[in-house]
Amino acid sequence: MRRAVVLVVLMAFVWAVQGEAAEVTEPVEREWPQEGVFGTYDRAALQRGFLVFKEVCAVCHAVKYLRFRDLAGIGFPDEEIKALARQYTVTDCCDDAGEPFERPAIPADPFPKPFPNEQAARAANNGALPTDLSLIVKSREGHENYVYSILTGYLDPPAGEEGPEGAYYNPYFPGHWIAMPPPLSEGIVEYPDGTPATVEQMASDVTQFLAWLAEPTMEERKRLGLRFFLFMLVVTGIFYAYKRRIWSRLR
């Protein structure tokens, strides 16, 4: 008991000292269907998110870990994946003359990059390099909330604040000035399921798509976890009884 008191006092002291937090705007807290022990991805949102990604984000951002075949994971049938892949051309090496040649993409191909290399990407983007989005949700503090906040967080700069040339004010971005122009505007895509394409809706959908892309095996993981826990609870119970039984032999 006394130990606990000492610990609590100590911790309270440390917390009190912690007061001086850095001036980072915390991302908006939102609820996501993939959160929690039983959370799963919302397939309809993922498919809408992919549409936003394909038509808006993919103009500048690469996703090196997305292959067309992966889209089966968000509910696309094989034929649709093939048809989609065929709409893109990829450069393959090499034909009989040793020259690179172009061919339609197949499901095993990665989703084509918008720029052939970093220099080209920078040249086309005012010197800034658009981040690869494959793992963006996993690699940022705040995860989904951060991505959503960036997409919906563009504001007019506060009076007196001046950013670098060509940068936009976004309080959720570290340093508050971001090179990416506001990517979403009302109705920039048209959803086939008739969902109104508001900025919030699109940001939410594309964030969910990117969360899936960062960890496509999440649902499998949670499913296996559930089976693991059910099994382990039984084993733990049995061994608890067995242990007591064995030890009751003493005394």
């Binding site: 949670k222 693991f228 826990f229 382990m232 084993v235 733990t236 608890y240 067995y242 242990k243 064995i246």
Partner: peptide, 21 residues
């Protein structure tokens, strides 16, 4: 041996919570 296995079960529950969730 039995006591260690019982302890292992509890430990695995914690390990599993990390790995799966």
């Amino acid at each position: 041996t039995v006591k260690d296995v019982f302890g292992l079960c509890l430990f695995l529950l914690l390990y599993g919570a990390l790995v799966f969730y």
